[in-house]
């Protein structure tokens, strides 16, 4: 039976790991390659690097980080953040990423998803959907780290991305990100039920019960978290044992 995945996410800026609270107040916490190795040893199912380097001149640093990680960790690696062109995707894949996550660029240019899925295969194209609740049962896509509203409906957008060839959706609730209050379960469930590609729940994990909710209630195929693993509150194994005790199929 296919297992639900637990994915630790590392926010990387200028080659260093950070985790922001609502994308500000960044706390520097280490070398991404070392962190990746720890998660590999702990049995993480996948790794996710989110590159939040703002300046263009430092953008190539992530390629080096990806390269070094892929040489040490023989596990799936997803990289996102600032991916704008086919060339960006190609460079990340060649550096050793297995999947590339496209965010703002997918909103601006839907053909990028289509073209890249045709070129590299749907299996390596993840679309990052950053959604904010605007009223009851209505979520909109926000770009630029959650600062810019687009007016685009998150559900319709997710469906569209699937039809364009996205192989997976990385769904982040911008209302919950950094709050430790748990995933936006309504949103997660709605999108998971709507699309036939896997959905990764993201944004808001403060405890292991939130991972359980994301899978059980949100129907997510995978759950992503950063700070609870990163600051040593929980190990990946603890998370898996917890989920296992709740009857969620995980790989231990």
């Amino acid at each position: 039976m296919l297992k639900n995945r637990i994915i630790p996410c590392l926010d990387v800026k200028n080659g260093r790991v950070v985790k922001g609270i609502n994308f500000v107040n960044l706390v520097d916490a280490g070398d991404p390659v070392e962190q990746a190795k720890i998660y590999d040893e702990q049995g993480a199912d996948e790794l996710c690097f989110l590159d939040i380097t703002a300046s263009n001149e430092n953008r190539n640093i992530i390629l080096d980080t990806v390269k070094k990680t892929a040489e040490k960790c023989f596990m799936p690696l997803t990289v996102g953040g600032g991916v704008r062109t086919i060339e960006d995707i190609r460079n990340l894949l060649l550096a050793g990423a297995d999947k590339v996550s496209i965010n703002t660029a997918a909103v601006k240019n839907k053909d990028l998803v289509k073209e890249s899925a045709e070129k590299f295969g749907s299996q390596c194209i993840v679309v990052a959907v950053d959604a904010k609740k605007v009223k009851e049962n209505k979520w909109e896509i926000f770009t630029h780290g959650g600062r810019k509203s687009t007016g685009i409906d998150a559900l319709k957008f997710s469906e569209k991305m699937e039809s364009m060839g996205a192989g997976e959706i990385l769904l982040t609730s911008m209302d919950r990100d950094g709050t430790k209050k748990g995933y936006d379960l309504d949103l997660t469930k709605k999108i998971s039920n709507l699309v036939n590609i896997p959905v990764i729940a993201s944004g808001g994990v403060g405890g292991l019960e939130h991972l359980h909710q994301g899978i059980k209630i949100g129907k997510a195929s995978a759950v992503l978290a950063a700070s609870i693993f990163h600051f040593g509150e929980h190990t990946i194994l603890e998370a898996k044992q917890y989920l296992d005790s709740k009857g969620i199929p995980v790989r231990i």
């Binding site: 039976m1 296919l2 995945r5 199912d45 996948e46 299996q123 192989g167 997976e168 036939n196 896997p198």
Partner: peptide, 16 residues
């Protein structure tokens, strides 16, 4: 066969 959309595709992740 996605079993009438019961299964997500790609088959992605860890399986026995």
């Amino acid at each position: 066969n996605n079993m009438n959309k019961k299964l997500k595709l790609p088959h992605m992740g860890w399986n026995e």
